[in-house]
Design a protein around this nucleic acid. Structure first.
Lengths: 201, 201, 201, 201
DNA sequence: CATGAATGAGTCTTCATTCAT
DNA sequence: CATGAATGAAGACTCATTCAT
């Protein structure tokens, strides 16, 4: 077991993970060679395999961590719970938290955006599952909103997909442009578009 | 020169392109082995290289064709030309044409959605350029709409990115679900969300 | 049988042989591709195999022709036959004939000089045999000369090898330099060196 | 940096070089497959590429080493320097050193003799340059000898080519015959022929 | 634990040869 | 006979993974 917290080991592990994240982000899963990773992490070849079973294992580990972090920032929006803040506030908070987390780590963001094709079926599936979960959450939120008469009738599945895409599109823009925008305003704009559209009236 | 016609050759070339498209879609650029492509195309190894210089050449060819087809379906929306149909109609037509083209060829859609990391820098650049162009078009349309007082004030760059993402998100949904939806309704819903948002009022 | 003299066929065969000779000379046996040969000969791929069984077959054919031509120019020098010209004259005539034949066809010369490594064991052997024969001839001439008291005592095998090398060296010079030298003088110089050496006395 | 010592690595490198030298000598550059080399060297495919960048790299390395070794054995002959041994002695020493070096390593000798057509243009050029240099050296020695009245008037370029060929011819004989001759006597004979020719007087 | 030399399965690509038209 | 499209064996090279030191 490596998980048992020897601090030096933990540090090393983190070094590897970070190196791998950068290399994956720059070159994609396939283009990322163990060579590049260990060079960036300043470790020997064998050492890598002391901490991770395989290339796909690091990738999985990075993904798992990211998805778990993201999941902890996103929940079902409570509507009946009288103690909770109003739905729009909850929504805003979650979107903001998500964006902040992803934007903070450019490599991770790139990795998540492009992590399509891994030969590691599991990783692909895990990522797909994550996005599916997010869409479900959105979809249910939309459904509830419709039932409560807050939202206009629509095809929730489709709109959920559209909105998820919207978020990805915005993240891509933020990540590709090195210029730093105030995330707060970005979220405001995004939500306005999603909720009110772009027409004047 | 034979490059023009010979129906048998054209047919063969198409077989290879289709096989490649499927394999690329399923396995990504790297995961796609020449072996897999020629097996699916039912041809010998050497035959592949009779039609394409290299693996990246087929990929490029597929990409080029797709982007050119798409570009021919998408143009700047004319607003002052009194002979032209109203902007919303033009917009709808273009989105519809795009979706129809992409949805028709599932493999191509998957390929376009995930064609992030190719070692072929040119291909990656070409794809990036395409999406950048699309965003520009959207951005300018938004700007014009704002200037004409049709759209509410917004950050056009951000909104353009969001909408492009929306389209990608919807395409992904359509492509992943094998269920066939009436594209017409999909477009209507998408445009409604983009233009009017989801709120009731 | 192709040997039966249809003149058009003969002409075509010659075209192929010449093309092959040039390509072999320029690129070596391995570097010579059937492609290059048929392009230069202006024929289709299949046509090549109508005239020659394989790549090595053309090579063999070229070699065989050249060696046979050369052999017909080189004979044992007659010393007792009172009707024959003096040995030195015979020697000179043969060396001259050899050089003239080889120099006339630059490609052939290059091919003969470098035709070391063919995967075709037979061709290699044939070439080796030719050079061995030439050396034998020289060696016996030397031996005879020694026995007749015309030449100083020496190790005939060694000296034969040296003189064969001398000839090859000179041919190489003539072929590599595009400048045209009077072959007659070349032969004179060569024979003088071989017979009298370079010292003054 | 490890490039300097590590005896085990050096040994392995030598094993590869030797295997390659043999295979190149037997089969020529093209005929030599990496497969054959690694089999003879008893190493795995990847190991080869740990020591050499490519097939042509080993070839280059072998060539470079040989040419450098040979160059260090051959110099301009000093004639005015009163402290130097007489020219004939210097000449003899150099020819002897050259032959000894080349004969000792049969594979190397074969490789040098036949290293005509490499697709590696650089290697070919390097070899050509070497022989050109040697010819230059000989040519200048002849010129000097003529000017000093030691040698009879001749065309130095031609004679230099002849003598270089002579050396190659003799090496070829020594290398092809497995029988071992006393190199000393070989050199004596060769020089005698070159200097005094074969005639009795 | 760390190291990095060694491994070999797997990839792309070339090219001599065949054969249906 | 001529053609050139099709074939597939063979070759060079890469890179994730292992293991002796």
């Amino acid at each position: 077991m490596v998980s048992t917290a020897d601090p030096a080991k933990q540090e090393r592990r983190r070094r590897i993970v970070n190196a791998a994240k950068e290399v994956f982000a720059e070159a994609g899963y396939h283009g990322a060679s163990i060579n590049a990773i260990i060079e960036r992490a300043q470790i020997a070849r064998g050492t890598f395999y002391l901490y991770f079973e395989s290339k796909s294992a690091v990738f999985d580990s990075i993904l798992e961590q990211a998805l778990s972090d993201l999941r902890s920032r996103i929940h079902r929006i409570a509507v009946d719970d009288s103690g909770a803040p109003p739905p729009q506030v909850q929504l805003r908070a979650q979107v903001l938290a998500t964006l902040e987390y992803v934007i903070r780590d450019r490599s991770l963001a790139l990795l998540l955006l492009s992590a399509g094709h891994t030969p590691d079926a599991e990783a692909t599936e895990r990522l797909d599952q994550f996005f599916a979960d997010m869409r479900d959450l959105l979809q249910r939120a939309l459904q509830t909103g419709m039932e409560l008469g807050l939202l206009r009738p629509c095809q929730p599945e489709l709109v959920a997909a559209a909105m998820l895409g919207m978020i990805r599109g915005v993240i891509e823009l933020l990540v590709r442009q090195s210029s730093v925008r105030p995330i707060d305003e970005v979220v405001t704009e995004m939500l306005t578009v999603a909720l009110r559209g772009v027409l004047v009236a």
